[in-house]
């Protein structure tokens, strides 16, 4: 299957923190993030409605006359399909955004998200709200983002599309040195809806730098060490709890189904 790496699409970064000491039972917490800073919808029902409506439909290049009409209407013409791109969720998603204000910003963002020049040059957002408990017992409602220390750099969308470059680029980059991401934690405030991951928080919230992730090598056996790991956004150690975000809760089941489809291993420290 071709990997259209340069197509405009969100990318993901899942991390597992192995937190047990030598000889103790294995404990870990997962953090699953993506380049889009919020979800399209706030609830499971709205998500299903969105998924239904944004089903990919045949995607054809807009006619030149249609584009002129768009320009006269002060609209941006629909982008031309990439070579080989024959279906797209574009039309359905735009229809959904029209009648659902909560989805407008995420659909606007995803329509322009582009592709990174490197997996190491994108910011990844864990999107959902989690509750973290400080050493003094203080609970805070927070969101996490990975930010690359070398900065975010999207690919020039006018360049010729290119498949299969991201994995190769990362391998090449790591051969020259490690890659780092800062884990930024944003603290939610009174008035923020902690159960709604379709709304990002404004730029004024306090941001705390929680540490650095250093990526120094790629697992040799991708199947065993990557594809077979079953990440789960609800796998959380003491001190981190899931918020009431219904989508976060629903993802537990979704990931389970996805694991089965990929034949991933059952989580060895599943609490259930």
């Amino acid at each position: 299957m071709a990997q259209h790496d340069s197509w405009s699409d969100p990318r993901g970064l899942a991390a597992r923190f192995h937190l047990s000491k030598e000889g103790e039972p294995e404990i870990a917490t997962d953090l699953i993030a993506m380049t889009l800073p919020e979800y399209f919808t706030p609830t499971v029902d709205t998500f299903l409605a969105f998924a239904e409506m944004a089903k990919p439909t045949p995607y054809r290049r807009e006619s030149a006359w249609r584009k002129i009409w768009d320009l006269l209407n002060l609209k941006i013409p629909q982008p031309d399909p990439y070579p080989g791109e024959i279906i797209s969720p574009y039309e359905g998603a735009m229809d959904y955004a029209r009648s659902n204000d909560f989805s407008k910003y995420s659909i606007y963002q995803v329509s322009m998200i582009g592709a990174p020049v490197s997996y190491a040059r994108a910011a990844y957002h864990a999107v959902h709200t989690f509750i973290v408990t400080g050493q003094d017992g203080t609970r805070r409602w927070v969101r996490f983002t990975w930010t690359p220390t070398v900065g975010v750099l999207p690919r020039d969308q006018n360049e010729k599309p290119q498949d299969h470059y991201l994995a190769h680029e990362l391998r090449h980059r790591l051969s020259k040195g490690a890659v780092e991401f800062c884990l930024m934690m944003v603290i939610g405030e009174v008035g923020d809806d902690f159960a709604d991951s379709s709304r990002a928080w404004g730029s004024q919230r306090q941001r705390v730098n929680m540490g650095t992730l250093t990526l120094d090598k790629i697992a040799e056996d991708q199947l065993a060490d990557c594809e077979h790991i079953s990440f789960n956004p609800m796998r959380l150690i003491d001190g981190i709890e899931a918020s009431d975000d219904p989508l976060l809760r629903a993802r537990l089941e979704t990931y389970e189904a996805s694991r089965k489809a990929r034949d991933g291993a059952v989580c060895p420290f599943s609490r259930s």
Partner: peptide, 10 residues
Amino acid sequence: PPHSLDELPR
């Protein structure tokens, strides 16, 4: 009335 996303530039 509802706003279509493609009206954002306008």
